[in-house]
């Protein structure tokens, strides 16, 4: 039986890859963690900190982001920005995204052969 739990898992799977693209896009401008979360939320993407912070650390470890600790408003904050490698990866991911979107739209409209 299809339950809300299954739907929840599917949504999670669907969002997982998309969140990486969203973060890379948003970090074309430098942000610190909390501000990044707020910026994404303002665009309709509510990602909890427990998911977002480990994700940006992983992306940094993979070389797609750079970071530095800096003081702002009398607080030490870690600022993240997309790296050169990150931009190249983002470009490829967006190409993939566009292809997927085209395919899904084609399927939705029933034009698929």
């Amino acid at each position: 039986m299809f339950t809300d739990e299954y739907l929840g898992r599917m949504r999670l799977e669907l969002r997982r890859g998309m969140v990486i693209i969203a973060v890379l896009l948003q970090l074309r401008t430098e942000h610190y963690g909390y501000a990044l979360r707020q910026a994404l939320e303002a665009r309709g993407l509510d990602i909890d900190e427990g998911t977002l912070y480990p994700l940006i650390r992983r992306l940094e470890f993979q070389g797609l982001l750079t970071s530095e600790w800096r003081e702002e408003d009398r607080r030490n904050k870690r600022f993240y920005a997309i790296s050169t490698e990150g931009r190249a990866a983002l470009k490829q991911l967006l190409t993939e995204w566009d292809a997927l979107e085209t395919s899904i739209n084609s399927l939705r409209s029933g034009k698929a052969s």
Binding site: E49, Y53, N76, R78
Partner: peptide, 17 residues
């Protein structure tokens, strides 16, 4: 590895909230 860094980031975020 990275423990202090993670904790500092979580603390900063929590304090800001």
């Amino acid at each position: 590895k990275g423990r202090d860094d993670i904790l500092a980031e979580l603390r900063q975020s929590l304090e800001e909230q």
